[in-house]
Design a protein around this nucleic acid. Structure first.
Length: 417
RNA sequence: GCGAGUGUAGCUCAGUUGGUCAGAGCACCGGAUUGUGGAUCCGGGGGUCGCGGGUUCGAACCCCGUCACUCGCCCCA
């Protein structure tokens, strides 16, 4: 540690960026409420087993990206790399299967030991939703619509494309996987090294390969859509019909897959080309097999997660709120009065800055620099007349207001909050 | 884990073939302006040139190592 610096892949969230994050979370929480989602949170770390079981022993996240350590009691615990595992664990440990369906919204930091790059950090943040207990496709449509609404409210929906696909139910999926492995195994020597490794870990991922040689082979591979049984095909058609009915644009991407076996039916991603190679800003899907796989009562589920850093980057600059009232006292009497006035106004909900150093010019400069909406001058002249000089810093207009009406007037004109 | 690029003031960067090369703009502080911000002008503080080693009479500049950042691969939000 040559200099004092944050750990690799972590960042300080200074006010300007923190404000953007806050906005993403506020919008997601608000829209989520309209869809019946209640906020809940789970611990930032869990027993390592929780993630191993949900993500699978061979997934990249488990094999090379987890922050795992042994605590003083000898337990292996892991900083959460995603939300779903913890939320589902909570669902099971709290016995929530008695009150289906449940809809949870969560937000907070996640940790993955990866090489940092644009839109990818070791500590990052997501907004997350999970809906448990609804087997019908309507829940998928609602999940998608909620994501769409959030992106729209953030003003970034236009920068994204919604890609959807269906993995089918477990029967369809198993059948497809078998056909796919057979197809690729016969051509294994022509596959890239990466894809050969994927063949036994995560064969569906080969469909996604960026390698040119792989792409040629993939072009002739059996299509997932052809392996869907009747129930799965009907389900997927229902999802698409729902999106059409809501006027939500999407494209079907047959290469869009999820590696793990408990994922079923709908898989989707809102992707952008504006963020380099990290295109996904929000993604998720249905996981009807997960709760059962974790030892809970078989329960269907669907959820998604959105990357706050990525969404914040898409949003661009956010104007700082300009609502502070700056008190500019002149002289001892003014300062004494301003101290009390500042307290009174703050108690009534106004943001107040008290400029207490330097001459009047310095104090006005300070008011301007912090972006105050108005400056309230309190000098001997004003106090003698029982007024304060209120100057609008945007227009420069100023007027006298009686001291005993000041709080009322400022609150009325500048709101409480 | 792999590949490439970049590290000079708080920020964005300049620095000619190694020889006043420690600079600019912005920001910050002070003054012009002892009852009025934004504009302008003047002045000022601030850098072990990421860090360590090497080559050389001499290194911000060349070499090696290291750390960090950025971009890409893998994977993902």
């Amino acid at each position: 540690m040559a200099k004092l610096q944050p750990v690799r892949g972590t960042h300080d969230l200074l006010p300007e960026e923190a404000r953007r994050h806050q906005r993403v979370v506020d919008v997601a929480r608000e829209v989520g409420q309209r869809y019946g989602f209640a906020e809940m949170s789970t611990p930032v770390f869990e027993f390592t087993e929780v993630f191993k079981r949900t993500l699978g022993d061979t997934s990249d996240v488990v094999t090379k990206e987890m922050y795992t350590f042994t605590d003083r009691g000898g337990e292996s615990v892991t900083l959460r790399p995603e939300f779903t595992a913890g939320v589902v664990r909570s669902f099971i440990s709290e016995g929530l299967s008695q009150q289906l369906p449940v809809r949870f919204f969560s937000t907070g930091p996640l940790f993955r030991y990866e090489r940092p790059q644009k839109g990818r950090m070791r500590q990052f943040h997501q907004i997350n939703m999970e809906c448990l207990g609804i087997p019908e496709f309507q829940a998928d449509v609602e999940a998608l619509a909620m994501g769409h609404d959030i992106l729209q409210a953030l003003g970034v929906r236009k920068d994204t494309t919604l890609q959807i696909n269906s993995l089918g139910d477990s029967e369809s999926r198993a059948a497809y996987r078998a056909r796919l492995v057979e197809y690729f195994a016969a051509r294994a020597e022509n596959l890239s090294e990466d894809s050969r490794a994927r063949l036994d870990r995560n064969p569906l991922r080969i469909l996604d390969s960026k390698d040119e040689g792989d792409r040629k082979i993939v072009a002739g591979a059996p299509m997932l859509a052809d392996s869907l049984n009747e129930h799965s095909a009907t389900f997927f058609a229902g999802v698409r019909r729902g999106l059409d009915a809501l006027g939500i644009e999407y494209v079907v991407n047959q290469r869009l897959v999820r590696g793990l076996d408990y994922y079923t039916h709908t898989a989707f991603e809102f992707v952008t080309t504006a963020l380099g190679s990290q295109g996904a800003v929000m993604s998720g899907g249905r996981y009807d097999g997960l709760v059962g796989a974790m030892g809970g009562p078989p329960t269907p589920g669907i959820g998604w997660a959105g990357g706050i850093e990525r969404l914040a980057m898409l949003m661009g600059d956010l104007a700082a709120p300009r609502r502070t009232i700056s008190l500019v006292p002149i002289g001892d009497a003014g300062e004494a009065r301003a101290l009390v006035l500042a307290h009174t106004l703050r108690q009534q909900g106004l943001a107040v800055d008290l400029a207490a150093s330097g001459n009047i010019s310095k104090r006005m400069k300070r008011a301007d620099k912090i972006g105050a909406r108005a400056a309230v001058l309190l000098g001997d002249d004003e106090l003698a007349k029982g007024v304060a000089m209120v100057r609008d810093l945007a227009s420069g207009a100023q007027r006298e207001i009686a001291l005993d009406e000041l709080a009322t007037v400022l609150v009325r004109e500048n709101g409480a909050g």
